[in-house]
Design a protein around this nucleic acid. Structure first.
Lengths: 127, 127
DNA sequence: CTTGACCCTCCAGTGACTGGAACCTTTATA
DNA sequence: TATAAAGGTTCCAGTCACTGGAGGGTCAAG
């Protein structure tokens, strides 16, 4: 299976797949005689795993750890749960931060007339 | 006023202030005989304005536009409002995205035993 | 046999800083 | 007055996670 096919199946851009190989996040595939990368189902499933993990917002380093756990038959689920819990806490922190921003910005937007005159509570607030 | 003082007053790191000058976001200050940057109140207030705008999540390019409007006596408040509304929409989009993620991840975290056995719904979901 | 669609590597750029080296100036102290 | 600490300067490199493009090789169809 060539890289385009693997890209389609995993949902990752070709460039990204090569990049992940470069940085050693996924291990290098076999090559055809012409030097083309050749993917099997296992490789594709690892790529898909990484894509999903990235979609959840795990960093590349965290994906590395998750992949290691994924392929470790003697893992403890607590290690996975810890990583996930850490990410969940990050998400919640970000949500709180965004909500504060949203409330403040939305009240400024509401207060601004948005006409052709220069008076502007938004600028006043930033100044 | 030297850069350390300006940094303290504006709430920006010194490095960042130099960087903003480098990219032309704020204009270069006067220099002392020794070549040290020399800030006045006006310069500090522009730096503070940029910091606040960045805190709201406006990009550097948006800060550039906001600064231009800030110092334009003939501005229309509608231009400012448009920028702020755009940013507000971004924030709301991000909030929705994070909420989807949170719900999914939190249900996975709850479902995972987090013990020393390998069974893990989180990994199953990523696979 | 040529065309177009693949594939490859390698280098550079993104955004918004941040760290560090190498060097100069000012200020406080012995 | 000598010196050391604490400031300032520039410039280059690194961060994160890709992404774009140049320049070149390979392969299947018409």
């Amino acid at each position: 299976m060539n890289i385009s096919h693997a890209a389609k199946l995993s949902g990752l851009p070709k460039k990204t797949i090569r990049y992940y190989e470069d940085i050693g996040l996924v291990k290098a595939t076999a090559r055809t005689q012409a030097g083309y990368r050749d993917y099997d189902d296992r490789a594709v499933s690892n790529l898909t795993f990484v894509r999903r993990s990235r979609d959840f917002g795990f960093s590349i380093e965290e994906c590395r750890e998750l992949l290691a756990l994924y392929s470790d038959r003697n893992r403890s689920s607590s290690d996975v749960k810890n990583l996930a819990q850490k990410r969940l806490t990050q998400i919640e922190d970000k949500q709180r931060e965004l909500e504060l921003l949203r409330v403040e910005l939305s009240s400024l937007v509401t207060a601004c007339n948005g006409d052709d005159r220069p008076d502007c509570p938004i600028l006043n607030h930033l100044a």
